[in-house]
């Protein structure tokens, strides 16, 4: 009886999450974090008594946005926070209908670049995707790139468990690696030629190792936003010529950096080239 109740409410919350704007939903056991993260970064460190983590993934850019020759369109409109909106509704529903505690898991950086809780790990543990050669982005087998949010709750649901099969590398990428020594993502941004990515695929067609130069990636994926604002401001403050300083303050670059801070959608990512060439989820982006 207890098992069927858990199964029933699991189905109910999953359908609710999808209706609220999620494209995929999965549920993880908070204890699964133990072997992956240090103390302080586990779900039950953030919500004592946590029994489940509901994870929602939503697509970012539309298929039309992927086709735009104006790369700035996707930089500004790539992300619409649907996963955040959906996860808040999920948390509301758990508290109001099931009378259990529920919070949005904190996924933004609070110390350095580290968030209190990793949404990437949450997605993996909830069975929604696996790490890829492309900047460690978690790829969903159907959609590829997704944005994730999570809800930590004291209510117990049925857990999904991790995917049994790696999403990356795609069999086309394995073939490409064996022929050319690179996958499409590594070829698009090779670390040995000024890019961010490198890696190897073993004889079983699995990732043997992956290399991702995050600092270099940040300098490209976030041309405008907090990073460019800080960089510009340091240069502005250090400028001794007041005329030149004024010009720098009112420059197009600084204006756009300020604008990117005000419109947070814009500051998430401004380079999608490793994902553009990824075969996973490509059929979902192919329309008329």
């Amino acid at each position: 009886m207890h098992a069927s109740e858990t199964e029933s409410r699991t189905q109910q919350i999953k359908q609710f999450a999808l209706d609220a704007g999620g494209d995929v939903v999965g549920i993880a056991n908070p204890r699964d974090w133990d072997e992956h993260v240090p103390e302080g970064h586990r779900p039950y460190d953030i919500l004592p008594g946590a029994k489940s983590v509901v994870v929602v993934g939503s697509r970012g850019p539309t298929a039309g946005a992927w086709r735009s020759p104006n790369h700035r369109v996707m930089e500004v409109n790539g992300y619409d926070f649907r996963n955040d909106a959906a996860i808040h509704r999920v948390a509301d529903m758990i508290e109001s209908d099931f009378d259990h505690l529920a919070i949005q898991a904190p996924g933004l950086p609070t110390g350095g670049h580290l968030p209190p809780m990793s949404m990437m790990l949450s997605a993996v543990l909830a069975g929604l995707g696996t790490r890829s050669l492309a900047a460690n982005i978690i790829l969903n087998p159907k959609y590829g790139l997704l944005y994730y949010s999570a809800c930590i709750t004291t209510l117990e649901f049925d857990y999904d468990g991790m995917l049994e099969q790696d999403v990356c590398p795609h069999h086309m990428c394995v073939e490409s690696y064996r022929r050319f020594g690179k996958t499409p993502c590594m070829a698009a941004c090779p670390s040995d030629n000024g890019g961010c990515l490198d890696g190897a695929i073993d004889d079983d067609g699995r990732i043997e190792y992956s290399y991702y130069d995050r600092e270099r990636c940040v300098s490209r994926a976030m041309n405008f936003g907090i990073n460019s604002f800080q960089k510009s401001l340091a240069q502005i403050v250090a400028e001794e010529d007041s005329e030149r300083q004024s010009t720098m303050i009112h420059s197009d670059f600084f204006s756009r950096s300020c604008s990117a801070i005000t419109n947070y959608k814009e500051s998430v990512a401004q380079c999608f080239e490793c994902m553009r060439v990824c075969p996973i989820g490509r059929t979902e982006r192919k329309l008329q």
Partner: peptide
Amino acid sequence: ARFIEDRFSYYAVAVPAGVDRGQQPF
């Protein structure tokens, strides 16, 4: 935009609000 793609299978993109290079709208 998302609804058009999911329901009718045609490409769709929302025009970004605000301005970009040179304070010009997209």
